[in-house]
Write a protein that binds this DNA or RNA. Structure first.
Lengths: 162, 162
DNA sequence: CGGCATGATGTTATAAAGTAGCATTCTGAG
DNA sequence: CTCAGAATGCTACTTTATAACATCATGCCG
C-alpha cells in the first residue's frame, strides 16, 4: 500500500511529494510484476508534476515531446493501465485525469475539484459512504464502482478571490 | 416542488409515471415563467419514455424525427435548459442524460446506474451526505455541486442473470 | 397596433474526446 | 533461440460537444 501524501490544497514540498509518489508506484509495480513502460511512466510523471487534472490530449502532448507515440491510442492505453491499477483516477466531470495520492486499493474516494485553480484533492474514503452503499443494497442494487466528485472552490482560492 | 415518482427499478405503471412527471414540469414552468418550447419538450418527453439514460445524439434523432432541428446545438441547448432547471440530470459516467424523477430542487442525489438494463434510478439525497460535505468544508473547500454515481447491477437484472 | 429588445431556433463548421483494427516491436518463459 | 503474449505505434474513424452567425418568435413599451 502506497502512503498518503499531503492534500492537493495544502502547501507542501511538492518535489518530495512527487518523488515519493513515483517511488511508491515503482515499488508497487515491482511487487505486482507490472511494467511501468516509457509511455506509462511519462504519463504518470506528467500527472505527478502537480495536483491538477490533465486531459488525455494534454498528456499526449507530453508523450509527443518525449518522442513517444503521438497518436491518441497511445495515451489512452497508458491511462487504461494506470487507472486499472489505481495509480491514476479519472475525473468524470472534467474528462480528465489525476495521479492518485491516496494509496489504498479500490477505495471509493471523494474528489474535491477546484474550479479556480483546477487542482483536485482526493479526500480519504469516508466512513460516511457506508450508508449510501447500504441504501443502494437495500434496494437490491449491487454497487461495483462509485464516483463521488465535488466541484467548488478550495480554501486558497477562496482567500485570494473572496 | 415536483413529487417523487416510483424508483426506476421498481415495477410501476409507467404511463402514469410519465404523465405525472410531464405535468409537474409544465406546472413548474408555468410557475417560474419558463418556456417549455417544442425542442425542449421533445427532449424531455423522449427521456420520460423510460428511466434509461439517453445520449445527446439519441435525443437529437428524436428531434429530427419530430421535424425539429437536426444539428447538435439544438439538442445541447435543450439539454442545457432542462439540466439548468433540474428537469433532467446528466450522468457523467455515461455522457448521457436522464429525466429527473425526484423533484426537489438542487439536491445532491445519488444515481444508481445499472450496466445491464441501462436504467438509472435517482436515489433520494441521503442524510449520509452531510458528513461528506462537512469533511470538505473542514478543509476549507466550498462545494457548489456534487456528483454521486454508483455503477452496478440492479435487483431485477441480478435475478435474471445470477 | 408597431417597434424593438430579448431569447430561442436553426445552420455550417470545427473542436475535443475516445475507439477499432492492424502491423511491428519488445519481453520473458521454455 | 524461439515463440507467445504483451506493449507500442499507426491510420482511420466514431462519438461528444461547441463556436459563430443568421433567422424567427415573444412580449413589453409607447
Amino acid at each position: 500500500m502506497r502512503p498518503s501524501g499531503p492534500g492537493a490544497f495544502e502547501r507542501h514540498d511538492h518535489s518530495r511529494c512527487r518523488e515519493a509518489a513515483l517511488a511508491a508506484v515503482l515499488q508497487e509495480c515491482a511487487a505486482q510484476r507490472l511494467r511501468l513502460t516509457p509511455p506509462r511512466r511519462c504519463v504518470l510523471e506528467a500527472l505527478l508534476e502537480g495536483h491538477k487534472a490533465m486531459t488525455a490530449y494534454e498528456l499526449l502532448d507530453r508523450l509527443r515531446e518525449a518522442g513517444l507515440g503521438s497518436q491518441p491510442p497511445v495515451v489512452y492505453r497508458a491511462l487504461d493501465f494506470l487507472v486499472e491499477h489505481g495509480f491514476v483516477h479519472r475525473i468524470e466531470r472534467l474528462s480528465a485525469f489525476v495521479a492518485c495520492t491516496h494509496g489504498e486499493g479500490q477505495h471509493s474516494a471523494m474528489f474535491l475539484v477546484c474550479r479556480e485553480c483546477h487542482r483536485v484533492e482526493e479526500a480519504a474514503s469516508p466512513v460516511a459512504l457506508n450508508p449510501l452503499e447500504d441504501q443502494a443494497r437495500n434496494q437490491g442494487f449491487r454497487i461495483d464502482r462509485m464516483t463521488i466528485e465535488a466541484e467548488g472552490v478550495c480554501g486558497g482560492c477562496l482567500e485570494r478571490a473572496p
